[in-house]
Write a protein that binds this DNA or RNA. Structure first.
Lengths: 200, 200, 200, 200
DNA sequence: GATGAATGAGTATTCATTCAT
DNA sequence: CATGAATGAATACTCATTCAT
C-alpha cells in the first residue's frame, strides 16, 4: 500500500524542516558541535526521525551544504546575461543582485566558509562548492570581457578581476557579523562595481 | 629550587612547539576534531604536558588564535603611515605588504575564519579579533582620507571603502584554496588598489 | 469478512517463508545480529508483516528453534524400534539415519548449539530442546539395552553410552564446518557404531 | 618517566581480570549481549578502562577466544607422546587428561562453539581455532597410527577416528549443561577409548 | 615538570516495536 | 492484512581532564 499524497507531502515538509534547522545549526555551531539531537529538537522530531530522512550525519551535512546551492542560489547567482548588449546596465543589475543575495545568505555562507576552510575534512561538499565557484567566476569573466568589448569597462585581466570580485563578495559577508546594519549593504555596490574597473 | 635558564628556555620552546602544532591542527581540522592527543603527538610531547602549558583546550585555542595576531600579524598589518605625505606610494606599499602577509597567513586565516563564522561559539577569541578588525579598518580609513586630502584618491565614503578593502583581503584568501599558484597573488594588488579608488 | 481459502494458504506460505529465512539468519548470524529487517528482506515482505505472523523477535526465535524439531526432526530421529527383534540391524539402520539427518541439519544445528550454549539467555527454547534430548537419549538407552539383551552389543552402562552417542552426533556436526566433504559423513557411521560397543 | 614495576604488575592483573570476566560473559551471553559496560562492572573498572587494555570490543573478543587456548589449553591438550612405546597406556593417559580438561573448560568451550557455529561472523578467532583443531587431530591421528603399529588398537581409518574422537570431546561438553554431576565425566573415558578401537 | 592510566560525560547510530494509513 | 514512518532505549566508542607516580 503506497503512501497517500498527503503523507508524502507531510514527509517532504518534515525533511525540509530538518534540513533548514540543520543548516542553521551547522552554520552557527559547526559540524561537530551540531548534534543530531539538537537538529531533531529544533525540528520538532525525534532524533530517530532524522535518520529516516538522512542516512547519517555526514549526509545531512552534505545536503545542508549542497541543496540550498542547487535549489536556490545557483540559479539566482547565475541569473545575468554575460553577453548582454547593454553591458554596463546588465553588470550593474548583476552586482545589485549579487550583493542582495549575499546579504541574505548570511547563515548559509558560514557553512560554505567552513567547508572551504576545512576542505580536507569535507571533500564531497567541497567538490560541489568548488565546481560552482569555477562556473561562477567563468561567467563573471565572460561578462567582464563583454563589458570591455563594449567599451564600458577599462581593460584589466578578466580572470583576475573575476576572482577579485568573487573574493570580495565572500569576504564581505564574513567581515560583517552584525548584519542588522543592512543599510551598509547597499553602499557596497559601489566598491563592487569599482573592482570591475568601469570607465568614468 | 628555581629552574635554570636553560630549563626555562626549553620549556618556552616546548610551549611554542605545542602552540604551532595546535594552530595548524585547529586550522585544518577545526576545534572539535583537534584532540589534545593529536596536538601532543604532533609536538612530540605527552598529552599530559599540553596541560602543563595550557590550562585546557579552550585556553589552547584562545592562544592559538590570539598569539600570532598579537606577536606577529598585528604590527605587520598596521605597519604603514596613515598620514604620510607621499600618500599614494605609502598606500601602494601598504597594499603590497598586506597582500604579501595575507598570502603567508594561509593557515592562520582558516583559524580566523572559524572564529568569525562561529563567533557565538568562540566569544573570547572573537572579541580579540573583532577589536583588531576595528583598529585595522580605522587605520585604513585614516589612510584613505589622507589620500583623498592629498588628491591621489577619488572621493568615496572612506568607511565603506575601508570595509570593502578588508573584505577583499579576507575573501581573497578564502577563495583560493590552492595557494601554490602564488603568481596570482601579485596580480591581486591591482584590484586591491582599484578598490581604494585611485585617480588615473 | 472471512478470509478465503486461497488467502489463508497464501498467509501460511508467507509465514513459512519468514520462518525459513529466520532460521537461516539466526543460525548464521546469531540472535542479536539477526534483525527483523533482514528477515523481512530475505523473505520478501515488509518488516511490519513479520509482526503480523510472529508476536515479537523472541517468539520468532522460539518458533525458529522449536518448529523444525517438532515438525520434522523429532519424528525422524525417533523413527527406530528400540525393542526390535533384529536388534543389530535396527541399530545400524538407526545410525545410518541419524548420521544422515545430522548431516542435513547443518544450519538448524547451529541454532541448537546457540540455545544450548547460552541456555540462560534462551530458557524457553532450551526447555523444548532439553526435553527432546531426554526423550531421545532415553530411547537410545532402551535400544542399547535391547541390543545387550539380544547379545549383539557388549555390556556397557547404557545411560553413559547413550549420552556418549548423542554427544558424538552433536559434536560431529560442530567440528566440521566445511560440509562439502560429504564423503566423510558416511564413514562416521563406523565410529558411531563402535561407541555402542558391538560384539565382533 | 616509565611506569614502575609495581604499576606494570597492577596493570597486568587488571587486564587479566577484564579478560576473565569477558570470557565468562561472552560465553554465557554471547558476543552482542555482552556489553563493555557489563564487562567493566564485572571487572570492577570503569568502562573507559576496558578501552585502555583492549582496542575495541572485537579485539577483546579475539583475545578472550585465543588467549586461553594459547596460554593454557593448547599445551595441555597436546601434552601426550604420539610415538610412545607403551602406546596403550599413553593413549589412556591422554584420554584421562582430555576428558579432565574438557570438563574444566566448560565456560571456554561455549565461547569456542559460538565461534565455530558462527564462523562467518568471527573469521579471525575462527582461524586460530581452526588451526589448533588441525594440529590437534593431526597429533591424535599420529597416536592412533602408533597404537595400531604396536597392535594395541584394531585397524581403522586413523583420520576418521581422530575426527570422531575430537567430535566426541566437543559434543560431550555441549550435551551436558549441568556440570554439577561431575561423576559422569569419569565414566565417559570408557566410550572415548572405545572410539579409538582398542583390542580386547 | 612529565607521563599516561583512569574516569565518565557525551554522541552517532541501530533496531525492536507501535500505529496510522 | 500490509506497509513503513516515528520513536527512543540501548550501546560502542571518543576524548578532555584529573591525578598518582
Amino acid at each position: 500500500m503506497p503512501l497517500s499524497d498527503k503523507q508524502i507531502k507531510m514527509m517532504e515538509q518534515k525533511r525540509e524542516k530538518i534540513l533548514q534547522q540543520a543548516i542553521i545549526l551547522f552554520a552557527e555551531q559547526g559540524y561537530e558541535s551540531t548534534t543530531i539531537a539538537k537538529v531533531a529538537k529544533a525540528s520538532g522530531v525525534s532524533f530517530g526521525s532524522v535518520f529516516t530522512y538522512f542516512e547519517n550525519k555526514d549526509q545531512l551535512f552534505f545536503h545542508a551544504v549542497t541543496e540550498p546551492l542547487e535549489k536556490v542560489y545557483k540559479s539566482e547567482l547565475l541569473d545575468f546575461d554575460p553577453d548582454a548588449e547593454d553591458s554596463l546596465n546588465e553588470i550593474k543589475r548583476m552586482i545589485d543582485k549579487h550583493i542582495h543575495i549575499f546579504t541574505e545568505m548570511h547563515t548559509y555562507l558560514q557553512l560554505v566558509v567552513q567547508v572551504i576552510g576545512q576542505h580536507t575534512k569535507f571533500p564531497e561538499p567541497f567538490k560541489v562548492l568548488d565546481e560552482f565557484s569555477a562556473e561562477f567566476t567563468q561567467k563573471i569573466n565572460q561578462a567582464i570581457q563583454n563589458g570591455q568589448k563594449h567599451g564600458v569597462l577599462e581593460d584589466s585581466d578578466p580572470v583576475i578581476t573575476a576572482e577579485a570580485y568573487m573574493s570580495f563578495l565572500l569576504g564581505m559577508r564574513l567581515t560583517f557579523t552584525d548584519f542588522a546594519m543592512s543599510g551598509l549593504w547597499d553602499q557596497l555596490k559601489i566598491p563592487a562595481l569599482r573592482l570591475l574597473n568601469p570607465k568614468h
